[in-house]
Amino acid sequence: MILASQSPRRIELMREAGFDVRVIPADVDETPRAGEPPFELVERLAATKAEAVAAESAEPGELVLAADTIVAIDGEALGKPADETDARAMLRRLSGRTHQVATGVCLLRAACEGSEPGSPERPATRDVFTVVTDVTFYDLADAEIDAYVATGEPADKAGAYGIQGTGGRLLVRGINGDFYNVVGLPIAEVVRHMRLLN
């Protein structure tokens, strides 16, 4: 199968779950559409990534997995911070509040020939779904935010923090839902959907 992501966290989760994946990152425009709700955004991006990689790289019948994760608060998606100033602003916004982490997932089985000679081609099939986890932050002092930003961890993380690193140990008061969804891939849910798609 193909993992349409170069995220080290997603690669590790798939391999720890026993999957031998070909890593082929998707190169798609991730710009939100005007007024697009965060949960619709992650599903659209996951599907777009899976379709792009399947069209270019999938073998007949091969499974493609793509995902997109965002942090949402007040109905707005927070992506990766542009710089340290942006990271500080995001963390101040999350301080003392509960936000949602949503991962949109697309499983796409590439089209293939029928199993019997002369039988029709089996069309591509896909399953798109979203998993949402609530995350609550402690109240954060500016000095705590500055110290965390200085670690460099927020730079490539949606919402400017990583649950599996220093951010999870020092900023997060609690979570309600799938921890691995916050890491970037709700692996148990993915496996269950894969079984249904086969």
Rank of each mutant, 00 (worst) to 15 (best):
R169V: 09
V64F: 13
S5N: 06
T151K: 11
E59H: 12
E56G: 14
I187Q: 04
A155I: 10
G159R: 13
N176M: 14
G165T: 05
K80S: 06
A158Y: 02
A158N: 02
I11E: 03
A77R: 02
D74Y: 04
E153P: 01
L78I: 02
E43W: 05
L63H: 14
G61I: 04
I163H: 04
E153Q: 06
A17L: 07
D142L: 09
V135A: 13
M194G: 04
L3R: 09
R192K: 15
P186I: 01
I2P: 08
G75N: 02
A147Q: 14
D139Y: 15
L65Y: 04
R173G: 06
A34G: 07
Y138F: 14
D127C: 11
A89Q: 14
R88K: 05
L197N: 08
S7Y: 03
V53I: 10
A46M: 03
R9P: 03
R192M: 08
A26D: 02
R93K: 13
A55H: 03
M1I: 02
A47W: 09
Y148S: 05
D86M: 01
Q164A: 05
L91Y: 03
A110F: 06
D142V: 12
A66W: 11
I24L: 14
T48G: 01
R122D: 01
S95Y: 14
D146F: 12
F179V: 08
T136A: 10
G61L: 09
L91A: 04
V190F: 13
A58M: 02
V191I: 14
I175E: 13
Y180N: 05
G167H: 07
R122G: 08
P60F: 00
A54C: 12
T48R: 03
V183C: 00
E153G: 01
P154C: 11
E43C: 14
A52N: 00
E51I: 15
P117Q: 05
A102L: 04
T125H: 12
D142A: 15
A17Y: 15
A26S: 09
T166E: 15
D83C: 00
L171W: 07
I163P: 07
Q100Y: 07
V172W: 13
V128S: 00
Q100G: 02
I175C: 14
A47V: 00
P186D: 11
A102H: 06
R195Q: 13
A47K: 13
L140Q: 05
M90A: 07
E76Y: 02
A143G: 12
V128C: 06
P32I: 00
L13Q: 13
L91E: 06
N181P: 03
E36C: 11
P154D: 09
G167P: 03
S57Q: 11
R92T: 12
Q100H: 13
D20I: 08
D146M: 06
V101I: 07
L140R: 14
R22M: 11
L78C: 00
V131D: 09
A72W: 00
I163M: 05
E43M: 12
R33E: 11
A158W: 00
E30D: 09
A34P: 07
G118I: 07
F137V: 08
Y148V: 08
T166H: 15
V71H: 11
L41W: 03
V190R: 07
T103F: 08
M194V: 04
V71K: 13
E121Y: 13
T125R: 11
